[in-house]
Amino acid sequence: MWHRRSRSRELPGEVGVLPNGLDLEEWRPRPSPQGGPQAPADPPPAPLRIVATQRVAPRKRSGELVDVVAAVTRRLGPGSVRLTVAGDGPDLARVRQRARAAGVSGAVELLGRVPRTELPALYAQQDVFLSVARLEAFGIAALEARAAGLPVVALAGTGITSFITDGVDGLIAPDDEGLASAVVRLATEPGLYARLRRTARTTPPAAGWDDVLAAAEREYSRARRLVRFRP
């Protein structure tokens, strides 16, 4: 027998999204030898150390990573930034060639495949994570970097915006020119880098397994509220 539907602000057509989960302890920033989280420099050290972890392939817009570095270098001068790319793929040779053509080959390091277990140590040596991908449904690599204490710079309209808040633990840009401007801001705007890095290091993302299970339970509860009948 059907029950009378109650008025609700929830719409049956709304779709809930469950985030990916991490073992946050694997990525948690380690304290400095003096104790406590290491305070980020302000302004950050030059060069600003940028890291990207991705497949080096056209879909991930690997060449555009080089373009962003070149744009920042034109604005801040040679030696202002350094890009480290962790990942393998068919575009490695093309990206190297693009870096040479843009005059930033000395500022771009392509590591190839890096085992996932080695990424926390790599992130500990970097200042900011950069994603130029447009087709990013979630962005697990960016989430891991964020959990490791790095601010994230990424494009609007991607899944990364589900866990990065512009101006809080990263910067979100509308386009590639905006990505370059965001990196310039991190290197030059007083207090910005230190504030974002401090938040990233001291506030874990809501992506632990407890968070994911709680989100799943909320969705089940919402589904039960929307279903108003008995078998």
Rank of each mutant, 00 (worst) to 15 (best):
Asp91Gln: 13
Val108Asn: 01
Thr161Phe: 04
Asp176Trp: 05
Gly106Asp: 10
Pro47Tyr: 09
Leu171Ala: 14
Ile160Lys: 01
Leu110Asp: 02
Arg100Ala: 14
Ala142Leu: 04
Phe138Thr: 04
Thr158Asn: 04
Leu65Val: 13
Gly112Arg: 05
Val132Leu: 06
Glu136Gly: 12
Ala121Lys: 05
Ala57Thr: 13
Arg49Ile: 07
Val168Thr: 09
Thr84Ala: 06
Phe129Trp: 04
Arg113Pro: 05
Ala101Asp: 10
Ala39Thr: 15
Thr73Glu: 05
Ile160His: 04
Ala71Tyr: 07
Arg116Pro: 06
Thr117Cys: 01
Thr117Ser: 13
Thr158Asp: 08
Val56Gln: 00
Val56Ser: 03
Gly159Leu: 01
Asp91Lys: 02
Thr84Arg: 05
Val95Trp: 07
Val114Pro: 03
Gly167Asp: 08
Thr53Ser: 09
Arg98Glu: 08
Leu143Cys: 11
Gly87Arg: 04
Val114Asp: 07
Ala86Met: 03
Ala101Thr: 13
Ala93Asp: 08
Ser131Leu: 12
Gly159Asp: 07
Thr53Met: 09
Asp169Val: 11
Glu118Asn: 13
Ile164Val: 15
Pro47Phe: 10
Pro151Asn: 08
Leu130Asn: 07
Ala147Thr: 10
Asp176Gly: 10
Val104Arg: 00
Leu135Met: 06
Gly159Thr: 12
Ala147Trp: 10
Pro45Phe: 00
Gln126Val: 02
Leu143Met: 11
Pro43Trp: 08
Pro45Ile: 00
Arg82Val: 03
Pro40Trp: 09
Arg59Pro: 11
Thr165Glu: 15
Leu76Gln: 02
Ala156Trp: 02
Leu143Val: 11
Ala93Pro: 02
Arg146Asp: 08
Leu143Gln: 08
Arg113Asn: 13
Arg49His: 13
Gly79Gln: 04
Leu130His: 07
Thr84Ile: 12
Ala147Glu: 06
Glu64Phe: 13
Ala101Arg: 12
Ser131Ile: 10
Pro47Glu: 14
Ala145Tyr: 09
Gly167Met: 09
Ala133Trp: 02
Asp175Ala: 12
Pro45Met: 04
Gly139Gln: 02
Val108Glu: 02
Ala101Gly: 05
Leu83His: 02
Gly139Lys: 04
Leu83Trp: 03
Asp175Cys: 08
Val68Arg: 01
Leu48Met: 07
Thr165Arg: 11
Pro90Trp: 01
Gly112Pro: 08
Leu110Arg: 06
Leu130Lys: 07
Val95Thr: 05
Phe163Gln: 00
Leu130Trp: 12
Ala156Ile: 12
Glu136Leu: 07
Gly77Ser: 08
Ala154Cys: 15
Val85Cys: 01
Ala57Gly: 00
Gln38Gly: 14
Leu76Pro: 08
Ala173Gly: 10
Ala57Cys: 03
Thr165Phe: 04
Thr117Leu: 03
Ala141Cys: 13
Val95Lys: 01
Ala124Trp: 00
Pro43Leu: 01
Ala70Met: 09
Val69Met: 13
Arg59Ser: 13
Leu155Ala: 09
Val104Trp: 06
